[in-house]
Computed example of a mutant assay.
Amino acid sequence: MPIIKPISDLRNNFNYISEVCHTEGEPVFITKNGHEDLVVMSHALYEKQQAIIELYQKLAEAEKESSDPNVQRVDHTDLMKSLRSRVHGGKTSD
């Protein structure tokens, strides 16, 4: 359930808002004159959300790249043989 507080709580009870952000691990929605105005969250939650956004961006990029018909593909078995050959100095062992 979202945590919604008036802007006066941010001004008058900042420590309480900070504590709620940290203990609940959820953002606090701040209203002004009864309407949504701000969202306050802990730094840890912010960093977590940024990491998720970055991951989704990378996944979207990889998905786009993998659907490109002009990209040369290498069979998994062939790739592993090549890597093993490099690691073992030209010798392959299957």
Rank of each mutant, 00 (worst) to 15 (best):
V74T: 09
A51Y: 06
G89K: 05
E19M: 02
A44W: 04
K91Q: 08
G90E: 13
S8W: 09
H22D: 14
S18V: 07
P6F: 02
L38Q: 15
K58M: 02
E63R: 03
K64N: 06
T92L: 10
S85C: 14
H35Y: 07
N13V: 00
K81E: 13
L38Y: 15
S8F: 09
Q57R: 05
D37G: 12
M41C: 06
S66F: 12
N33Y: 14
A44K: 15
V39Q: 12
Q57I: 01
T77Q: 10
V28K: 00
D78G: 10
Y56K: 13
D68P: 03
D9H: 06
Q72E: 11
E65T: 05
F29M: 11
M1R: 04
D37R: 11
C21A: 09
L55C: 02
M80H: 06
E47K: 15
E24Q: 13
H22G: 13
N33W: 14
F14T: 04
T23E: 14
E36Q: 03
N33R: 14
H22I: 12
H22E: 15
A51S: 12
I4C: 07
E63L: 05
L59F: 08
F29Q: 09
N70I: 09
R73G: 12
K81Y: 13
P2N: 08
Q50S: 08
T31R: 03
T31V: 12
D78Q: 13
K58H: 03
I17N: 00
H88K: 12
V87N: 10
S93D: 10
S8V: 12
S93C: 08
L38A: 14
P6H: 07
G89D: 05
E61K: 05
I4E: 08
V87T: 11
N70E: 10
V74R: 00
V39E: 12
V40T: 06
Q49S: 04
H76Q: 11
K5A: 11
H22F: 14
S42E: 02
C21V: 10
E61P: 01
E36N: 08
T23F: 11
Y46V: 02
S85Y: 15
T31P: 05
M41E: 03
